[in-house]
Write a protein that binds this DNA or RNA. Sequence first.
DNA 1: TATGAATGAGCATTCATTCAT
DNA 2: TATGAATGAATGCTCATTCAT
Lengths: 223, 223, 223, 223
Amino acid sequence: MRTDQSVIYAFHHSGQVLEIGESAKVRRTRKTPEERRRELLAAAASVFARRGYRSADVQEIADRAGVGKGTVYRYFDTKEALFRASIANQLDELETCARQARDRHTDPLERLRAAIRAVFAYFDGHPETVELFIQERAEFLHRGVPLYFLRSAMRHEEWASEFRALIAAGRMRDMPVDALMDGLGDLVYGAALSSTASPHRPCLVDRFDQLFEIYLHGALVQS
Amino acid sequence: MRTDQSVIYAFHHSGQVLEIGESAKVRRTRKTPEERRRELLAAAASVFARRGYRSADVQEIADRAGVGKGTVYRYFDTKEALFRASIANQLDELETCARQARDRHTDPLERLRAAIRAVFAYFDGHPETVELFIQERAEFLHRGVPLYFLRSAMRHEEWASEFRALIAAGRMRDMPVDALMDGLGDLVYGAALSSTASPHRPCLVDRFDQLFEIYLHGALVQS
Amino acid sequence: MRTDQSVIYAFHHSGQVLEIGESAKVRRTRKTPEERRRELLAAAASVFARRGYRSADVQEIADRAGVGKGTVYRYFDTKEALFRASIANQLDELETCARQARDRHTDPLERLRAAIRAVFAYFDGHPETVELFIQERAEFLHRGVPLYFLRSAMRHEEWASEFRALIAAGRMRDMPVDALMDGLGDLVYGAALSSTASPHRPCLVDRFDQLFEIYLHGALVQS
Amino acid sequence: MRTDQSVIYAFHHSGQVLEIGESAKVRRTRKTPEERRRELLAAAASVFARRGYRSADVQEIADRAGVGKGTVYRYFDTKEALFRASIANQLDELETCARQARDRHTDPLERLRAAIRAVFAYFDGHPETVELFIQERAEFLHRGVPLYFLRSAMRHEEWASEFRALIAAGRMRDMPVDALMDGLGDLVYGAALSSTASPHRPCLVDRFDQLFEIYLHGALVQS
DNA sequence: TATGAATGAGCATTCATTCAT
DNA sequence: TATGAATGAATGCTCATTCAT
């Protein structure tokens, strides 16, 4: 019987000004599909991150996006599709962010450092993104490779060439590129997932220098 | 009225031989609480890992353990309690395993290497354990620090002394112990969680040498 | 999969005519909230009265109201809320009925007589109302004063003035008003509850004259 | 997993003294079946009254009686049979109590007054008896006439003769005996059931004189 | 197109009853 | 005989999805 909540959300949604005396109902809004889609994805990311995929209520997402429940299903076939689109959206942003940071540099090692640092900063600024990755990993393993890993694979060549350049320049050790990349990938993934798990851990960027330092030079004293 | 499945499980439970034409109802069995508990935890771990915490049906756990659903609730107050007990059980095993491997060595670095290697081997042999950790991370964050991280914190001192010994011996770099430990922890956690995510990745022990090598000596050519 | 019953209820819902061979699935109907609410309360009263509060299955109420189970929960938060709303609804009707009968008279004694008679008649015509009162008394005592008695207390002043008028007129004995009212209340309550308990007892209105006569003039010969 | 409670109840049950060092387990007791039966009925009455028939847990009854659950079923076939036996037991006591009070008098009116007064006093002293009657009325109507009413009918002749004597003596009005008896019966039943419903009502014996006075002489001023 | 009322499969938990010990 | 571990039918409630308006 949730009929009364529309009032509460009326101002949440879209900052519409209601005329005096007008019933407290959101004016039928006409927005471009793209705009709607973006709002839905944002609402979904927030709710999925906060509640977890299973507990997230599509109704809450609809409320938060300021649309009816039916509209959600007009844009996304299922809750799962909405979730995946959310993830994909976050991954787009994350990749863009990393690439922009990288491309501000020319030195291969600085390119790598800048990219990883940007990823850490992104995670710090968007903790819900991390939650989304965990949720995907937890819920959708049996339905195929999670997008996080799929995208990782798609980026492989793009980054592998960076590593190869470093090896060719004699700066990085001559190990299999995959080993070097996966090692860094695991470190980043592990750091991200554990960052939000313990409440007292410092933010990721603050740990970045030490982590990257270990990755580059190791934990042991150089012999 | 789930009577049809009893045939399937008739041999699961207790090796009782049913005569032909006899009603396929499995005889009620009595076991020691410890045995029952162990069987329930094993069944729970398997089902939780396969379906995920939310999708796991207590009935399926009961079936798999060869007991009625009520018996599950006789041993564990709620589904959540059963899940947590499963996790705790796996963590016990994992820690025992790591300690045993460690204590076969005296050299601090070998102790560390052996422990991490044992953890990797354990994860390879018990992929459902990894799933359980992810499920816990995904579902129970809002209800307090997951047991995986809680236990990590409890083990902290035990392992910190190992790291301190390595630093004191001039073998490990003089960085904050937490940085060294967390770096390794993140690497292990990340490797474990991603190991079951991509189907084509080699098993963890096969990657161990390279990963640990990177952790110890870094990715860069020593300058 | 309760599909078999839909045939039975197909005509209940909305008079839709199903073609021969057509799937017996009843079309989804939309009604005004008031109408739905009324239908649900009627169905609930009937089922609660027949089965008792605890044994009543919300599914059966939904079936009888020609809606899905979820719709029941759309209108009432819990089974208990539905039950209480049922009771309140019946009490509303009962009170209206008694007041209307009372207000057709001016003489205070006739007003009282007419009201009680109307209550008896209502109970005869709505035996499920009596059951509801008993169920409430039996199940909800520990959760506060049952609505039946709460409403009784709320009506107190309204009726106390009638009794005071009778005493002031020298017609009713100068006893504490509460004693007179509670005596009548107990008689009515006892008569109602026992009326449906023994199958061979005459209906309440048929007993009314004698009961009210005893209440007014007593069982003894006047001295 | 209620294994630990036996300690708590060990002293409840039977005041057994546990030897020092002896495991805190109730010594296997050997009691006469009659004794057991009585204890079970007492425990049942208490629990049924407190929780209501449906919510009452047979386990709690067993605990309170200091026996295993299985033993309850050794004495009574079903929960319902136990409940009925409880009721019957209470009715026996109540009837005995009323008869004893009655038989201390010879004057028919005093006999009646004493009996009803004794019933009121019994209800005041045994509020759980009243609850039991309500529970029976609420739960078992559809399975036949409740014992309360059945016993009432069985006592009919015994009391009808008292009323007839009063009429023959010209003291009671020449109305159908059933009307006089049922009127009193309804008054008593109604008073009993409502007595425990409103927390602020005085006890029944305190109301007895006024109620019986109304029954005998009516609410109106004698004309 | 947008809505939100309606739907019903799904699932955790309880507890009367049984039965192996 | 006495026990309490084991059982599984029963049921309130949720929420993704549909569809009448």
